Computed example of a mutant assay.
Amino acid sequence: MLDDTIPDDRLKLIFTCCHPALAIEAQVALTLRTLGGLATDEIARCFLVSTETMKRRLTRARMKIETAGIPFRVPPGHLLPERLAAVLKVIYLIFNEGYGGRADLASEAIRLARVLTGLMPDEPEAFGLLALMLCHDARRSARVVDGHLVLLEDQDHTLWNSGQIAEGRSIVDRTLTGRHRGPYLIQAAIAALQTEQPVDWPQIVALYDELTSLTRSPIVELNRAVALAQASLPEAALTIVERLDLTNYQYFHSTRGELLRRLGRTEEARTAYRQALELAHSDPERRFLQRRLAAL
């Protein structure tokens, strides 16, 4: 750890753990377990797999490190770009876990992203990730009030952190115009638009179209469906949701329940909300789903 290329010990360790000899998912999972402060079941939720599956993945990754003799050393500066994708994902997943209730993790993820942008100032995705987290974290105080989850459209904007929002928007404005528009930067643009009044949902749908073509991710498709519903197209949104294979994902069921509710399909909505409730991991989300069920 004597190498001083990376000016932060924790970020230095993350780059060290994200070794390209491992598959990127193994790099990320092992780093989250070793350095990120996340338990195996929390990491499993990040990857939408069971805890037992994640235990096996972590064991295989450790065995490969041992049998292949993968060296545990800080990479030199010219090798940092090849590890950047895994490092960004580690920081993002640490933030996501923190956004669900552990403010210490969210703050640490933002701090690490700030160090990363200073270390790699020519990497737009590092700035995109920082802006994305700033815009989301800015709404933390308004998202859960008195133990109850508050949806975006119902949040008290006076509780938002205007400084974080301004910084996030500024990063997006100066970075999005470049040639490289990666997934984190596009997500940051979406998050920035969600802090404006009124929210330009058709523009957000267009950005999700771009993001979908880049990632081919079912989670992105689900979020695109939410944006379509907010743009007054709930039937089109439900068509997208129904073709997704995300039955172990809480937000798949809660989104489906909301769309069915809007379309007047009450019994189906109840079933979907109950399925989401079985998968919920935080008390505010459980209370929100219970309120939705009681209102049907």
Rank of each mutant, 00 (worst) to 15 (best):
M1P: 02
K12D: 01
A21S: 12
L22H: 05
I24W: 08
I24G: 03
E25F: 08
A26W: 12
T31G: 06
A39N: 09
E52F: 08
T53S: 11
K64L: 14
E66C: 08
T67A: 09
V74E: 08
P75A: 10
G77L: 15
H78L: 15
A85E: 14
A85S: 11
K89W: 05
Y92A: 03
I94H: 01
Y99E: 04
A103D: 03
A103Y: 00
A103G: 00
L105C: 00
I110P: 00
L119V: 06
L132K: 05
M133H: 01
M133V: 02
R139S: 09
T158M: 15
W160N: 14
G163H: 13
R174H: 13
R174S: 14
H180G: 03
I186A: 06
A189C: 12
I204E: 07
A206C: 05
T215A: 06
R216E: 03
N223M: 04
R224I: 06
A229D: 07
Q230L: 15
A231V: 10
E235R: 14
A236K: 15
L244T: 05
R256P: 02
E258Q: 09
R262G: 11
R265N: 05
E267I: 02
R270W: 02
R274C: 07
L277Q: 06
R287P: 01
R287Q: 07
Q290C: 09
R291W: 07
R292C: 13
L293K: 07
